[in-house]
Structures are given as C-alpha cells and as structure tokens.
C-alpha cells in the first residue's frame, strides 16, 4: 500500500507567555498512515495527541507553539511550502478533521445545515438542489433523527453527541482521502458509537478513506484499528497491531494503561492508576520520559533516551527493558 501521510521527526516547541521559557510538546514524533489504513493514536491526557493533529493541518496556536523541525508529507507533497490556496483545498477536501470539542468548533450563529452546505459549496461544483440533498443524506448517515428539521437548527439547540455527529458529517462531506478524528465518539453512547464507526470503516473500504483516530477508548482501538500508536510526552513509545499490543504489551506505560480500565466487577475497589502525572512540557528530560513513573526503572533509563526498536515483526517499543522478552 502507498504511503498517504508521513510525519518525520516532528518537534513542536512551546513558549511560556510570561517567562519566555521554552518547552516541548512534541519531541520527535514519527507517524505514517497508508492509503485506506486505520491508525489509532492513544496516550495520556496532555501527551500531545491533539497537537499532532493540529500540526499536520498547520492549525497550531501560534504563538505559543511552533513547529521547530521535522517533515510532514501528504501524497508525496511536502507540507512545508504550500500556498494559502493549496491549504484551503487540502483542509476542506483532501483531509477532513473532527475536532475534540465539537460544540466549540461549530459556528454558533449559523444553522448546521448551512455549515455543511458551505463546505460543499466551497469544494465542489454541485448545484443548490444537489447540495441540499447531499446535506440531508449526510445528516441521516451519521444517524441524526429528523434531518429536515435539524438542518435549520443551531448548535446550541443540539445535544453534545448531536454536535459531534454534525462535525463528522462535515468532515466527510467532500470525500477526503484522510480523516483526522480527535475523540470523535466520546459524547456518544455505544449504539450510536458503533453506528458511526461502522460508517467510517465502511468508507475506508469503499472509498479507501484513511483514518487517524485519536481516542482513549481501548475497546474501539482493539475492534477497529489496523495499527495502534501509543504516545507518551510527545514521543511514540509503542506501536503495532492492536491484538498483539494488547495481548503482549511491552512498554510499562502501555501495561499501566491496560490495568487502569474501570469495570463494574472492580466496583468498590480503588482503580489502578499510573502513579504520578505526565511531566509538563517545560521539564528537561534526558533519559526515558516515563522513568519517574516506571516500576521497572533502572539507572540506564535516566541516562539516555531509549530508541524505538522492533522487538517482533510489526511491534516496536521504546524501552530498554521491554516485557516478555
């Protein structure tokens, strides 16, 4: 399969507004997505998942953030030197984006139908009637009841999950070849969630849509992704096929994540959580970023950063002492 998106050694810096200290949000991120592939990006809150998505689309809040080095290629084109026109084409048509907080990323003073229609108008040559029909069918496909009525409603009149689905409809409206979806189903109950994921995954097969799915729902990852990338403090720490990673996690961080899942059967017991917190972007780190929280830490871990190595076929891990070997 051909490479669709390729992110190489991406570093994103962050300036503290008051002190002008410099920190790092991404510390050398590598990521590839093949055409039609479903890649899940997983990691602790604050580790840089949304920033990865935003830097691909050049939507970083600048300042305080800045891409300081690295390369982003999409369909063989370098994203470093595109004209504003080319960017508009890419953002609306080639790459669809579902933002993490849908209610705040929709336009509050425009009806949802008008927002979808505008996307279609800007990126296609459809007639007014076709746009209308397309808008209605998109709303129906994401499982929204009563599309005709909904079309003329405003975001504040919709529930959280409904806004999330409007965003999804908008992101896939122009048939993109890559969809970046940041927690697209967090506000959705299981039945609707399954419906949306089924829809998206059908599109990966029928239209060779590739998906970069940011999620903390490990069940979704296991059931739906071709590959999972686990991020910690702006670096990939483990990567591979979901079944392999979940059955044989090798990085202590991944092991911790899997142990923290809440279950009705664990009721009344304190849930396991990985001790400590994600270090702030401003903390200087020489060795392994996870060292301070790792149950297996050794002297070596604090001295140099472990490289990402392939331990089995298609399974990479960034740890000096990976489990199960």
């Amino acid at each position: 399969m051909t490479e669709l998106l390729c992110v190489r050694n991406l570093k994103v810096s962050l300036k503290a507004p008051s002190t002008s200290r410099e920190g790092w949000v991404l510390r050398g991120m590598n990521l590839t997505v093949l055409a039609g592939e479903r890649v899940a990006l997983v990691g602790e809150s604050g580790c840089g998942k949304s920033v990865t998505a935003l830097s691909i689309l050049r939507l970083l809040p600048r300042p305080p953030m800045e891409i300081s080095s690295g390369q982003i290629e999409f369909k063989g084109r370098d994203f470093g030197n595109l004209t504003p026109e080319q960017w508009r084409e890419i953002r609306g048509r080639e790459i669809g984006m579902v933002f993490q907080e849908p209610v705040s990323s929709l336009n509050p003073v425009m009806s949802v139908g008008e927002q979808i229609a505008e996307t279609l108008r800007n990126h296609s040559e459809l007639s007014a009637g076709e746009i209308r029909a397309r808008t209605l069918s998109l709303l129906a496909r994401v499982g929204l009841p009563g599309p005709t009525r909904l079309r003329s409603q405003y975001p504040h009149q919709l529930s959280g999950g409904m806004c999330q689905r409007v965003m999804i409809a908008m992101a896939v409206a122009c048939g993109p070849s890559l969809l970046i979806a940041d927690e697209p189903t967090t506000a959705l109950d299981v039945t609707v969630q399954t419906q949306i994921l089924d829809l998206l995954f059908r599109m990966t097969e029928e239209q060779r849509l590739a998906i970069l799915l940011i999620t903390h729902n490990l069940n979704i990852v296991r059931g739906h992704a071709d590959r999972v990338v686990i991020l910690y403090l702006g670096l990939v720490v483990e990567e591979g096929v979901p079944d392999e990673i979940f059955d044989h996690p090798q990085h202590p961080y991944t092991e911790g994540l899997l142990a923290a899942l809440p279950e009705v059967s664990r009721k009344g017991r304190t849930l396991y959580n990985i001790p400590g917190v994600v270090p702030s972007p401003f903390e200087a780190i020489t060795g392994c970023a996870f060292a301070d929280r790792c149950p297996k830490v050794e002297k070596k871990c604090r001295q140099s950063m472990p490289p990402l190595i392939e331990t089995r076929k298609g399974h990479q891990v960034r740890c000096f002492y990976p489990s199960g070997r």
Binding site: V42, G43, E44, S45, Q100, G160, E183, T186, A187, H216, L218, G256, L257, A260, L261, P262, T270, L271, Y272, N273, I274
Partner: peptide
C-alpha cells in the same frame, strides 16, 4: 455530565477514585 469522557483510562481512574 460526562465528566470523564475525554480522559484516558489512567487519568480517568484517578478522577473516579477522587470522586469516590
């Protein structure tokens, strides 16, 4: 209202522990 929906499982666990 969906207080832990955008938290990864580990942070979610510490928030649930705090709530409890």
């Amino acid at each position: 209202d969906e207080p832990v929906s955008s938290l990864d499982v580990s942070v979610q666990a510490s928030v649930l522990n705090l709530l409890s």
